[in-house]
Structure formats: structure tokens, C-alpha cells
Amino acid sequence: MKKSIILFLIFLCLSFGIIELKSAFAVTNIFTQGIYKVSDFGKSENHIYTIQNIRPQDNIYVTILDENLNVIEGVRLLPKSPKIDTIPVNDNFKVIIIGKGEVNISPKQ
């Protein structure tokens, strides 16, 4: 009796999607407000990344700092902005994202 109840509860959870399964290798390129290293965005052969605000209503600001914390590039992304290429950056640079939006940052192919 206990086994059937436990199996029923597991099946119920799986059928309603309460338990969300993700692959261990799943990588997301969507980032919110915070401070990140460029190495967090994946490896780029040419050290250039594309950035895009994917939210339909919120602006977002993206600032790139070098290893000495000098501002290298600053970009204001409007809602649903087109993809913009960054300048070439090193893995030890930092990226500051400010705002309520969500930024898709991926290595340029």
C-alpha cells in the first residue's frame, strides 16, 4: 500500500511538472542584474560577444571594466534591442549589468 501511494505521488509530481529536470550540461546565456566575469559567458575565439536585451519593457545598462576597473565600454539597451557586438575583451574583464531587464550574452561566432 505504501509503495503504491509513493509511486502515485511521484507520478503526479512528474505529470504536473513540479519537479523540473535539467541536464547537467545545460548552459544558459541569459543574465540579470549583477557583476560577472567575462569567463562566465563561455569561451569566444575572437573575444567578441553579442549582447541583447530580451525583455519587452525594461531598459538595461551593460558596462565592461578591464582588470584595473577602468570603464572600457558602456551600453544602454532598450527593450527588445537588436544584437550588439562588444569590443574585444579578455577573460579577466568584468561586466556589470544594471536594470530590471534580462541580457542574452553569447560568444560571437
Rank of each mutant, 00 (worst) to 15 (best):
K2F: 04
K2V: 01
K3I: 09
I6Y: 08
I10N: 01
F11H: 05
F11P: 00
L12K: 00
C13V: 03
C13Y: 08
S15M: 13
F16W: 10
G17A: 06
G17K: 04
I18H: 04
I19Q: 05
I19N: 04
I19S: 04
E20S: 07
L21Y: 05
A24F: 07
F25G: 01
F25Q: 04
A26W: 03
A26P: 00
T28M: 03
N29R: 08
I30S: 02
F31D: 07
G34Q: 05
G34Y: 04
Y36E: 08
K37H: 03
K37C: 04
S39L: 00
D40H: 02
K43Q: 10
E45Y: 08
E45K: 11
I48A: 14
I48S: 09
Y49S: 14
I51A: 15
Q52L: 11
Q57D: 08
Q57I: 11
D58V: 02
D58I: 01
Y61I: 13
D66W: 11
E67W: 00
L69P: 01
V71M: 08
E73V: 08
G74C: 12
L77M: 13
L78S: 10
L78Q: 09
P79N: 07
P79T: 06
P79W: 13
S81L: 11
P82N: 14
K83L: 07
K83C: 07
D85L: 02
P88V: 08
P88T: 06
V89P: 04
N92G: 02
F93M: 01
K94P: 01
I97G: 10
K100H: 11
V103Q: 13
I105V: 12
S106Q: 15
P107V: 05
P107D: 05
Q109E: 08
